[in-house]
Design a protein around this nucleic acid. Structure first.
Lengths: 251, 251
DNA sequence: GCTCATTCCTGGTCAGACCAGTACGCTACC
DNA sequence: GGTAGCGTACTGGTCTGACCAGGAATGAGC
């Protein structure tokens, strides 16, 4: 019986699946599962060949397939990277928007509400112990630098690091992809508000650190729902800060 | 000046174009130009490698790319074929239509008007001397068998051969692709009328041979416009034959 | 502290071999 | 004469090991 079954399965599956195809599926799986992230440098062809017990020729064939599909991108002398599957759509729709438009900043905050909330939620559910430890270390580093004088750009980069660390390790391909695109393409739209607040008040918005700590603590206790709420609240407060900076434009 | 130009061209083009990519473009070009037809078996990887002066590995990489794009299809032990670029669309829209429906037969004749007309036109313009000679030979063979008794199926196949010979060598990828699909998918819809006429009258529609000769002679003199008209007239008369077979359904 | 050359790693390319399907022609049997 | 069976000569699939060329990191020399 069992043998019969196996035979059928083999008959149905084997005839068309070459080794290269198998590898392609495996790689795609790793990407979809978030194990390999967009932008990440893959292991070299030689390493992959060793890891999967096949020749480099087969790895190359598989990589060629995936490059053709826009999943991977290889560069001579540099390596092969995972492409961001959302990049194309993102560029298409948000191509060359002016970064300083008020409406764009609101729209970006709208998106951040979803992305940062989900990122915190998935991080709680899926991050490994090592990844959690990375977050702890990063947070401690931020706390230490808390009272040092920082330029708006430094401050923005520190904030970016915190949020991206959560997103990058949330093991959810969609969130990772979108977070990368949002934070890189709209860096100015996101962090311009920091500079403007600093210029007017001589300090950064006061809620940031406390809310970061709220997110951090919820994540530390793996409380996904609380983490999501804390992340959403963080964006909400940021929105209020933005609205106070542009008082005439509130609806 | 010229050197400068070359440099610029190289700078713009070279950096990203690998040998495999070059071959892919070359192969695609041959297909688009009608030099390699859909369904045709390509030269083997070893032959291509020799022809293009590169290693088989590069040919394989190129073929892998094109298989990924659905341009080629390779089968172990058999070879690599050019795919019909219209097959997907065609299947999508005309999936499992009943072959005997009157409306379908009319629709198919409508399409044949365009396809056979254009095929004849392009054949006049683009066929090589060898291809013209092939048509002459085929036509002479048909003339010889003219008075032999033929079953409807044999008769249909002879007709198919004549029309496909023109289409296959018209050097127009779109026409070749569509003709292949139309004549293979709708063989019954196209040639059912032959059998029915034969059953009712004991003979085949009398106009066919004369009109084939008209098409043939126009093509022989490379008179593209006349050839197109002759082909269109052929389909028109076939349509009238069909309508006479189904007298109650004329609109 | 910066520049430049070395070095190592990457993908790109090649040659040659063998395995595993498929097609085709030949042979031998019915 | 026709057909089943077999062998051969192809095809793509896979492996090995080598070398070239581009990029990045490192360290020596200025």
């Amino acid at each position: 019986m069992t043998e019969q079954h196996n035979e059928n399965i083999e008959r149905a599956d084997m005839p068309c699946i070459s080794k290269a195809d198998q590898l392609s599926k495996h790689i795609t799986g790793r990407i979809i599962s978030g194990q390999w992230k967009p932008g990440q440098l893959m292991a070299s062809e030689r390493q992959l060949a060793a890891e999967f017990g096949m020749s480099r020729a087969m790895v190359r064939e598989s990589v060629t397939q995936l490059v053709g599909k826009g999943v991977l991108q290889s560069r001579h002398g540099q390596g092969t990277r995972v492409c961001n599957p959302m990049a194309h759509l993102f560029d298409e729709h948000f191509g060359d928007l002016p970064q300083d438009s008020y409406e764009l900043q609101l729209a970006v905050l709208e998106m951040r509400t979803v992305i940062d909330g989900e990122a915190a939620w998935y991080f709680c559910q899926r991050a490994s112990a090592e990844e959690m430890q990375m977050l702890v270390s990063e947070f401690e580093r931020m706390e230490q630098r808390r009272h040092h004088a920082m330029t708006p750009l430094e401050r923005a980069k520190a904030d970016l690091t915190f949020h991206m660390l959560i997103a990058e390790h949330c093991h959810q391909i969609l969130i990772i992809s979108l977070a990368q695109l949002l934070y890189s393409k709209f860096f100015n739209a996101i962090y311009g508000v920091l500079g403007r607040t600093h210029r007017r008040t001589g300090a950064y918005p006061p809620h940031i650190e406390e809310q970061h700590r709220n997110i951090f603590q919820a994540i530390c206790s793996r409380d996904a729902e609380t983490a999501r709420l804390a992340a959403e609240q963080h964006i909400l407060t940021t929105r209020q800060t933005l609205e106070q900076l542009e008082p005439g434009r509130q609806s």
